[in-house]
């Protein structure tokens, strides 16, 4: 227990370092490169108007002073109003979190559900046609650009046979195409890792022992081999989920007009809404840091050899 809490404190400090680091980077990028006042004012604004706005927003203060003023408010969750929506930026981002979480978790569940059985079957019969097929299509999943896959799925299922909706949010018929698109890459990578780690376990001596005890083949595979192979699988799945949440949903959300924070980030970027961008990156950094801590704990739970120190 003592060890866990020491670990937790160290991990927490590291997370704070990451969040502060991300905030500083985003702050410096948005304030120091180019003129934030010029960027957020209409194109026809005169130099005097831009200057007056910059003075009012404090854009002409020294950068450290600006950062301090910004950080004082940011720790209380006040990132300022979105320049584009005229509403508190953090609220706008948080509103979008459930949609992205729903999309990402559906995608990772789809990916795991489709890759584990296929990977096991391929590992059982190496070099069979099923193995070759699995290896090839899992490689395809990794190679195909997600935005293109999304467009192809729209063309096939939404335009040609009107089975699903091409954009929007709310029902499973809206969710299925973006989730499949997002799941393709993790599915490909997880299938490969299931196959190779199951092949590793298959020849271990404990497998012979389990069979010699007279356990059913199914039981040997699931409770012995898969359990031991699960560590790399869970690690990769958690890592892929983190990657999605860390901004890779932007593309898929843009293609399917999915109202998550990825789509919001893209809007903020197109509208040059600096406060909204800052709030968005902050929330994403928070989610990523939380995911990383969660991964460590899952790791320690499934692998008794791992100690959190």
């Amino acid at each position: 227990m003592v060890r866990i809490s020491a670990y937790f404190i160290r991990r927490l400090l590291q997370s704070i370092l990451v969040i502060v680091g991300v905030s500083i980077v985003v702050f410096v990028i948005t304030r120091a490169i180019g003129d934030p006042a010029r960027m957020s004012m209409p194109l026809q604004a005169t130099d005097e108007q831009v200057e007056a706005y910059a003075q009012r927003m404090g854009f002409r203060d020294p950068l450290p002073v600006q950062f301090w003023n910004w950080a004082k408010k940011a720790v209380r969750g006040d990132f300022g109003d979105s320049l584009w929506q005229r509403e508190p930026a953090l609220g706008l981002v948080l509103e979008r979190v459930p949609a992205t979480l729903q999309l990402c978790f559906t995608a990772i569940i789809l990916a795991l559900g489709a890759s584990i059985p296929l990977g096991i079957l391929a590992a059982l019969r190496p070099r069979s046609w099923l193995d070759k097929l699995t290896t090839s299509i899992s490689l395809l999943g990794v190679c195909i650009p997600d935005f293109w896959l999304g467009l192809m799925l729209i063309l096939l299922f939404a335009v040609s046979i009107h089975l699903f909706f091409t954009s929007g949010y709310g029902t499973p018929r809206h969710l299925i195409l973006p989730a499949i698109t997002l799941a393709a890459r993790p599915w490909g990578r997880i299938t490969q890792i299931v196959r190779s780690s199951m092949m590793d376990e298959m020849h271990r001596t404990y497998m012979m022992t389990a069979r010699a005890k007279g356990l059913s083949e199914q039981r040997v595979l699931i409770t012995h081999a898969l359990k031991n192979a699960s560590i790399p699988i869970v690690t990769l799945a958690a890592w892929e989920l983190t990657r999605m949440l860390a901004g890779y949903t932007i593309v898929v959300e843009t293609v399917f007009a999915w109202p998550g924070f990825g789509q919001l980030a893209m809007h903020a970027i197109v509208e040059r809404d600096l406060t909204l961008i800052q709030a968005n990156v902050f929330v994403v950094a928070l989610i990523v840091v939380a995911m990383n801590i969660a991964i460590d704990f899952i790791y320690a739970t499934i692998d008794p050899r791992v100690r959190l120190e």
Binding site: V18, V22, V26, A246, I250, A285
Partner: peptide, 20 residues
């Protein structure tokens, strides 16, 4: 390396590109 790996890479890339 560790700190930067934990950064949301693509999102930051988009933000930097917007600015430069």
């Amino acid at each position: 390396v560790d700190t930067q790996t934990a950064f949301p890479g693509l999102l930051l890339a988009l933000v930097i590109i917007t600015m430069i």
